[in-house]
Design a binder for these strands. Structure first.
Ligand SMILES: [Mn+2]
Ligand SMILES: [Mn+2]
Ligand SMILES: [Zn+2]
Ligand SMILES: [Zn+2]
Lengths: 138, 138
DNA sequence: TATATATTTGTAATGATTATAAATTAGGAT
DNA sequence: ATCCTAATTTATAATCATTACAAATATATA
């Protein structure tokens, strides 16, 4: 009944991705900072560990992870691409005040979508926008 | 019980937007072509009517319409901004084969979002991706 | 008509992402 | 260990969508 924690190196190897130092660090960051980070956030955070790091590597790595199903893309706002290590079906709420992105659970499969029967659905996204409780108080 | 058709000029005047020729043409296009067009699609279509048309005007006009609540923004894919004349709550399905965007009706308010109680929700978006029935047959 | 204001236009600036090629790294063979 | 090859990373240039800005044009008012 004990859940085996899958290390980041194993996560990569299991998906036939060579666990380079940069890839491990990016994945580690995603696992430890579940904030739906932007490329810039990841880049800034990893510069301490990898002084020679290039932003291209972040883009390459994230696109690799997306193809492998390790992370998923979040595009609530135009020109603000974010990445989510949680690939399970859940909704996202963006606070227009503080900019934070919250997860919320939602039964997307419960609601019936009229008008697209016989359509093959690959993925579903639910995005809300508004003001979070923290900002609402002020 | 008869529904009064609101002309595009009246639509603009009702929202305190001066009905310039360009604005009327853009809104007319949105009303008659409910295809969630991109800026380029609108621009190409209107060049016949307005040879001197500038793409800046399309951007300005659409942003004006968004602020006025006349149209809403659709961002299923990053770097593909589309505009919807239908501001009612409904879902969008993008076919990855033909690129077409389909509307579908959905009871977004029916599903409860656990984890964001006390949040003030301004707008809700539901995006699906997959293959439409037309493309699936082939 | 003259004048002020709003709108449109053309062009430059911005910024995020991708493309490309050189540099570096890592692993296997000798 | 050295050599060789392929993969990865890096730096830089290219691309593309959007916005910023100022000049030109159109519209409204006196
Ligand atoms: Mn999430
Ligand atoms: Mn629609
Ligand atoms: Zn907030
Ligand atoms: Zn299709």
């Amino acid at each position: 009944m004990r859940k085996v924690i899958e290390g980041v190196t194993e996560m990569l190897l299991n998906r036939n991705i060579k666990p380079s130092y940069q890839r491990i660090k990016v994945l580690e960051y995603m696992m430890n900072n579940r904030i739906h980070p932007t490329v810039d956030q990841i880049y800034s955070a990893l510069q301490n560990d990898i002084p020679t790091l290039s932003k291209s590597t972040i883009y390459n790595t994230l696109n690799l992870f997306i193809d492998a199903g390790l992370v998923r893309l979040i595009t609530i706002e135009e020109n603000e691409t974010r990445y989510d290590i949680d690939t399970s079906n859940h909704g996202h709420f963006k606070c227009v005040e503080c900019g934070e992105i919250y997860d919320f659970s939602i039964n997307i499969d419960d609601l019936e979508a009229k008008g697209i029967s016989n359509f093959k659905i690959n993925d579903k996204n639910v995005y809300f926008r508004g003001v979070c409780s923290k900002c609402h108080k002020m």
